[in-house]
Amino acid sequence: MIHDLFIDANRCIGCRACVEACSECPSHGGQSMIHLDFLDRTQTVQTAPTVCMHCVDPSCAAVCPADAIKIDDNGVVMTAMPERCIGCGNCSLACPFGVPQLHVEIDLMMKCDLCYDRTSAGLKPMCATVCPSGALYYGTRDEIEDLRRTRATNTFAFGDAAVSTRNHLMAPAGTASIHIHDGAGHSGRGLSRAEQQLGEALC
């Protein structure tokens, strides 16, 4: 039985333990499949870990011209099969969560496969095993909702496009679906030169 992963970026402390643990996995030899992003270093120290959400109807697999992305019967969306992947980047363009990593130099896409070798054997994924703050939690919905005031949500709206996922984001109770901002009020504001320089200096 493969459980679900629950992601609460607000609990992330940017320690990179998940990144390092992920890169230990032999199935992707030293490469971390987790993205750890600063949201806006001019305003906050908030970081956000992103792993594959394992969509119910994964757009990465749907647009793959080589049919290199397979889905397990448990709904786990696998990383690209190396013998098939032609490094086109369609998956990277199609994924609304920005997960697939396209390695152009080796013509291969790699992404989180929920530590399939571990989770299918009853173990936790590497990232959730080492996360000290509970930003990445592996278990059942009942378990996480016993522990938190926030609730697990796995339906998203990107404009008119609705996406359901196997993994969950934590959101306040009563949030049936997470409507992803269309960018108004966020990316619309330009940065002053001082802010740009501050951001670059902080990198």
């Binding site: 993205h35 992003d37 001019t42 305003q43 992103t50 994924c95 609304p96 997470i178 901002h181 990316s187």
Partner: peptide
């Protein structure tokens, strides 16, 4: 930027006081 947008949306849902700008900073 897609990842940041998803994370920023979640941050705003739980009442984060900052307004992250995508493409901002690093």
């Amino acid at each position: 930027c897609r990842r940041k947008r998803v994370a920023a949306t979640q941050a705003s849902l739980v009442g984060a006081s900052f307004q992250p700008r995508l493409g901002a900073g690093c």
